[in-house]
């Protein structure tokens, strides 16, 4: 959080970047988002081996908006994020109860098609996790697995997705080289491209900038802003300044007696300017957390 000042200083051109001029923080919610609910959590609780990690979360997330989940470590933000694409299934001893609705469909239902769900919901992790293969193969694996086998289509999809994340010009000559040779920021953008190549509706970002240096972090952040309107983005961040810069909606999570809870949720300007809950104002002003 201490480097937020320097981050924005390092990117004086951000406001002038093409395509972003019209964007203003705080007012964006009205401008960009249709007020239709895309995703909804009802009474969601997550238990890790008898320890209650998250209790009774009720949250609605609007289509095409960027929602930031903020709060101190260990308050269940990441668990919440991982339950949205049911990645919690992979974690031993983790049980999720309650309802999660995407477009009115409960994804917690027993016979949910998880592969379809995960195609619908893309996810980026804190550390860039490129597979130890070539750049091309990283993008081809999900495409092929979802039934795209034609070489021309594959190539064009790969190009489009790399262009979307602004990586095409940087890597077009070395698509067959190992992806691990890319810089951290490039790797994270490749991960984003890999998630977007399946054209998901929802993108889950788990602190996508925290493992990156300020410059790469700025590039990735700009990229996330450019997704507004096309994807529903849910981003976990420890960086309040980042949430202030990019989010339309903010949800504050807090661990009360070791149990994660949703404290407050609302449009970014309301949360930042007139928080309702005392924890929120304390967190935003920096006296707690």
């Amino acid at each position: 959080m201490d480097d937020t000042q320097s981050t924005s200083e390092l990117r004086p051109t951000q406001e002038k970047a093409p395509g972003f001029q019209s964007w203003r923080p705080y007012q964006s919610a009205q401008q960009c988002c249709e007020p239709s609910t895309h995703f909804q959590a009802e009474n969601l609780s997550i238990v890790y081996r008898k320890h209650l990690a998250l209790q009774n979360v009720n949250l609605e997330i609007n289509k095409g908006c960027i929602t930031a989940l903020v709060g101190p470590s260990g308050c269940g933000k990441t668990s919440f994020l991982m339950s949205i694409n049911r990645l919690t299934d992979l974690i031993l001893g983790c049980q999720v109860s309650g309802r999660l609705l995407i477009n009115e469909t409960d994804i917690m239902a027993p016979f949910t098609d998880l592969l379809h769900l995960r195609r619908q919901v893309g996810m980026i992790f804190q550390k860039p996790t490129v597979f130890p293969f070539s750049i091309r193969k990283n993008l081809e694996i999900p495409l092929r697995e979802h039934g795209m086998c034609d070489h021309a289509t594959l190539a064009s999809s790969i190009e489009t997705s790399l262009q979307q994340v602004g990586l095409w010009d940087e890597v077009k000559d070395r698509l067959n080289q190992p992806a691990q040779g890319l810089s951290g920021g490039q790797q994270q953008r490749l991960c984003l491209a890999r998630a977007m190549v399946l054209s998901p509706e929802i993108l889950l970002l788990d602190e996508p900038c925290s493992a990156l240096d300020p410059i790469s972090s700025g590039i990735v952040e700009d990229l996330i802003v450019s997704l507004r309107g096309r994807y529903t983005v849910i981003i976990v961040t420890h960086n309040l300044a980042q949430a202030r810069r990019i989010a339309d909606y903010v949800a504050l999570f807090w661990a009360v007696d070791g149990i994660g809870q949703l404290i407050e949720h609302g449009p970014a300007h309301t949360i930042f300017q007139s928080p309702q809950h005392e924890l929120t104002s304390a967190y935003i002003s920096g006296t707690r957390g």
Partner: peptide, 8 residues
Amino acid sequence: MLSPSNTI
């Protein structure tokens, strides 16, 4: 541990 199968 991973998702249940749905293909042949």
